[in-house]
Each structure stands twice: as structure tokens, then as C-alpha cells.
């Protein structure tokens, strides 16, 4: 249900590695910045439970210096 976007700050020079690790996760879209070690991550999960599982997987990815939640949407209509 929840759709969230994050700003992900990769360790200097590790943007590609972080990108690949993120893309391996289910329900993740990744948009890396061209000129900074920063990526936009959009997560799309089907339930609160799935979301918690994904969050713990993301927390384990090395070389992520900081991850900031920017937007969160709950798709009420599709929930019904």
C-alpha cells in the first residue's frame, strides 16, 4: 500500500554500488543524480508488513551514509 520516496546519500564514490543494491530489492525504483553521490529511491509495497521487511533490508545495505524520507502516500483507493 504505501508509496514512499527517500533521498539516499551514498558514501563518496559508491553511488553505483548503492544503486545496484537498491535495485535488487522488490518494489524499488532508483533515480541517481548525475553530479552528486545522491539517489532518489521510490518504494512501492503492498502491505505494511512488506514495507517493514523492505525497510529492514534497506537498513542493511552498506555504503549508505544517510537516508531521508521525503514523501509518503497511502493509496486509500487501492486499499479498499
Amino acid at each position: 500500500m504505501p508509496i514512499k520516496s527517500y533521498l539516499v546519500h551514498a558514501a563518496p564514490g559508491h553511488k553505483e554500488i548503492v544503486r545496484n543494491s537498491l535495485l535488487k530489492q522488490m518494489g524499488c525504483d532508483v533515480f541517481p543524480a548525475e553530479n552528486e553521490d545522491v539517489l532518489v529511491l521510490v518504494t512501492d509495497t503492498q502491505s505494511k508488513q512488506d514495507e517493514l521487511v523492505l525497510e529492514s533490508k534497506l537498513a542493511e545495505i552498506p555504503n549508505i551514509q544517510n537516508m531521508v524520507l521525503v514523501a509518503g502516500f497511502v493509496d486509500e483507493k487501492s486499499k479498499k
Binding site: 533521498l7 545522491v38 514523501a71 493509496d75 487501492s78
Partner: peptide, 30 residues
């Protein structure tokens, strides 16, 4: 429902890009 999810995902991505532009002036997304 599908359009709506796509719409929300687009908004979520754009929000994050905008936030990035605010905190990191000059940041470029392809």
C-alpha cells in the same frame, strides 16, 4: 487503481528530486 499508483509514484519521485534541489543546489538528475 493502477493509474493512481503510478501517479503517486511519480509524485513521490518528483518530491524527492525537488527536495534534493533545495538542499543540494545545482544537483542534476538525468
Amino acid at each position: 487503481g493502477v493509474s493512481r499508483r503510478e501517479f503517486l509514484k511519480k509524485l513521490a519521485a518528483i518530491s524527492a528530486m525537488s527536495a534534493a534541489a533545495t538542499v543540494i543546489p545545482g544537483i542534476i538528475f538525468a
